[in-house]
Amino acid sequence: MIVDQIFRFDDVSLQVNGKQLLNALSFTVNKGEFLTVLGASGAGKSSLLRMFNALSSPSNGSIQFRGSPIESDIQSLRQNVGILFQNPVVFQGSIKENLMIAGRWNNSISHLLDHELRSILNQVGLEEFNLGKNAKDLSGGEQQRLALACTLLNHPQVLLLDEPTSNLDSKLARAIMDLVDKLRRELDLTIIVVSHDHLLMREYAQRVILLSNGEIVADGPFKVLDEQGAFKKVGLSGREVSHET
């Protein structure tokens, strides 16, 4: 169903300095999906994730967002496709100044009132903090939630997450994934998570794209990939969780 298709990758490759990072990737992502891209370190996961909001472009092939070329309106695309980086940036200043950062170019954010900002903090589980608190004083996990709140203020349709659990202990990792899943349901988001932690992801994601050396080696639900033994092929087998980044 074309109306539900958010992304369409056709034969997408990426070469950097003569090195082939991604090779002939073709797939689609539908609205409301919870997709995880798994693979070992260096498989090309983060390079792929950056293409979803046009932070980088393919050397070959094409990407469509909602039926149009992804680069037709880049600023609007980036507001629609939010990203949470592996080590999210928190800017100098208070929580409020961080939340209002996109207000420099987005009037709907610059006009937000304090109670609206508090409501977004509530949504990401930071309700106990004062808007005037220095953002740099927040813990790593709290800074991650603040960065998520900044992204949500753009009312994105898609949320990209780059290794969101890599710097967290297992309890906090589960908490952030619970939050992402809750937001997906509440805000009707499409979620694309890059991770190497397939054990955690199988609790949340409906679909896996398994990358190895820049190529898709498997694409489907966890159950099907388990039956194919796909995880073993890329070194993600057993109960062990690889902690490389």
Partner: peptide
């Protein structure tokens, strides 16, 4: 670098 890419991702123009 990361700050700039974060701002781009939030919809900033290169100059912003």
């Amino acid at each position: 670098e990361k700050e700039i890419e974060t701002l781009l991702s939030l919809g900033a123009s290169p100059k912003q």
